[in-house]
Amino acid sequence: MRLSSFAGIAAVVVTLAASPAVAAPEAFAINKPHTIVAFSVDRLGLTKMFGSFSKVDGEFTVDRDNPNASSASLTIDTTSIYTGFEARDKHLRSPDFFNVQEFPQMKFVSSKVERTGEKTAKVTGNLTLLGVTKPVTLDVTLNAIKEDARTKKNLAGFSARGMLKRTDFGMKYLAGPIGDDVTLIVEVLGDAK
């Protein structure tokens, strides 16, 4: 019994040693000044209103050999909302919309990555907004991974687009005049750790 156990372990060790080298997933930290999470939403059926969050933090991993094993997590400071009009920003921070004093953060944590092309993937994850967690899928494009000439470390740039319904997260105020469908526009730069 003991001999057969030893033989099994030895076989696993030999198999692992003989398998080709697999590159470890690369980990990146969000480069805050060059990362933006923006959104657009219909207003009164007349125009699209654009806004963004200037304070975004997080990290992601890129597995070049197995892209589906890549992952990402973003934390967005909802107090940093900016739409170019201070009175509107104050209203968006109030309990009518982002309720920033009660829910100062919004979080996205990926749960599944499906490669759809050479540089594209569908990234599904859980978005937590106003205390409600719901799945959201983003269409992500890996723009490039390049070496930073100054630091000699890799930089990774992504663009992501997605859609969510704000009422799914309990943001129901003025649903109708202000659209329910919110388009997400995310541009992420990461510094290799």
Binding site: A87, K90, H91, R93, S94, D96, Y173
Partner: peptide, 9 residues
């Protein structure tokens, strides 16, 4: 509340 930009409240 209205002056404080909290319309729903």
């Amino acid at each position: 509340a209205l002056i404080g930009n909290a319309a729903s409240l």
